[in-house]
Simulated scan of single mutants.
Amino acid sequence: MRRVLPIVVGVDGSEPSLRAVDWAADEAVLRGVPLRLVHASLWERYEGTHPVRDPHRPSEEVMADDVVGVAARRVRRRQPDAAVSTDVLAEEPEYALVRESRDATLLVTGTRGRSGLAEALLGSVSLTLAGHAHCPTVVVRGAPGDRGAAPSRGRVVLCVGTDGKRSPVVRFAYEEARRRGVPLDAVRAWRMPAYETTDLPRTSAELARLHQQQALEALETALADIPADIETHRRTVEGHARSVLAAASQDAALLVVGARRRPRAFGLQLGRVAHGVLHRSACPVAVVPEPV
């Protein structure tokens, strides 16, 4: 019998992490998988966040166990049928959650910060997880007042790279669109290199058409295996991919990008596009690992 892997959520008691719990609870119900809430006890040292106090309990009682307890009660109020488990790990969150990702179907985290300005920046934990997790990682972004929009709303935006057919990023995106019953918006950004520009309008136009055609071909190749039941919209857009995708995220439920995983490589394994959208997206971002 095949083991059902849970969705793992990193919780630290902050409002951004609780919005991530909301998103993950809805996603767990959509997928029909368990939800595992994990608190790594050294989190506050790195992120500088403060737990959201349970208004029904004195602040001195809010400890590590209560952080996951508050999150679990929040899940049960939002999704009573969700199967929830909790754990407190006495270690650094980066190491603990990357290890947890080995046995997870999805790893979910929030942004850092306690204000709109702070949340424009991504914490070191979220960046590390996006760059090193063994399963897809979702960083839940959104307005501070949004307590977790249901993942069935909106559309799924896919950043199409040059990976060809049968890409795990494409598969993840269309499966998410199918679960939600929403369209898949596949976007391929393109730019005409500066060294190819010319003062001759006709030549410039011809070069632009060439690069746009190459983008269209890459788009069609990547989407060749998408099932017929997925409503798919294809778009090529001239501009920097980070800016194009940030604009596309404004009315989306989820933005999906890929991140290459180089065996035995050190440092952050995120490309410029993934790194950029994690800082600028208006909706949750799914980073799907891809082997080189």
Rank of each mutant, 00 (worst) to 15 (best):
V4C: 03
V4I: 15
V9Y: 08
G10S: 08
D12C: 05
D12R: 03
G13C: 03
E15W: 01
E15L: 10
S17Y: 04
S17E: 01
L18R: 14
A20F: 09
A20Y: 07
A20G: 11
A25E: 01
V38G: 03
S41L: 11
L42W: 13
L42V: 14
R45L: 11
Y46V: 12
H50C: 02
R53Y: 14
R53H: 13
D54F: 08
P55R: 11
R57D: 00
P58Q: 10
E60T: 13
E60K: 12
E61W: 15
E61S: 12
E61C: 12
V62A: 09
D65Q: 14
V68W: 11
G69Q: 14
R76D: 01
R78G: 01
Q79G: 02
A82F: 00
S85K: 02
T86I: 06
D87V: 08
V88A: 02
L89A: 07
E91W: 01
E91I: 04
E94C: 06
E94R: 14
E94G: 02
Y95E: 09
Y95Q: 12
Y95C: 00
A96W: 04
R99P: 03
S101T: 11
A104V: 08
T105Q: 15
T109Y: 02
T109Q: 07
R112T: 14
R112V: 06
E119M: 15
A120D: 05
A120Y: 14
L121T: 15
L122S: 12
S124Y: 09
S124E: 09
S124P: 02
S126C: 03
A130Y: 10
H132K: 10
A133L: 06
A133F: 01
H134D: 08
V140Q: 04
G142R: 11
P144H: 12
D146P: 07
D146F: 11
R153E: 15
G154I: 14
R155M: 10
V156G: 05
V157H: 12
V157M: 07
L158E: 10
L158A: 11
C159V: 10
V160S: 03
G161S: 13
S167P: 00
V170G: 04
R171N: 07
F172V: 14
A173T: 06
A173S: 08
Y174V: 04
A177E: 13
A177R: 08
R188I: 03
E196R: 12
T197M: 15
T198V: 10
L200P: 02
P201N: 13
E206P: 00
E206Y: 01
L210D: 09
Q213T: 15
L216G: 06
L216S: 09
E217C: 00
A218K: 07
L219G: 02
L219Y: 06
A222D: 04
L223F: 07
A224D: 05
A224M: 06
D225A: 10
I230H: 06
T236Q: 03
G239A: 03
H240P: 02
A241G: 03
S243H: 11
S243W: 09
S243N: 09
L245R: 08
A247M: 04
A253E: 10
L255N: 09
L255T: 12
L255H: 13
V256M: 03
V257H: 12
G258C: 00
R262L: 10
G267N: 08
L268T: 15
Q269M: 13
L270M: 12
L270W: 13
G271E: 13
G271R: 14
V273I: 15
V277C: 04
H279S: 08
H279I: 11
V288E: 01
E290P: 01
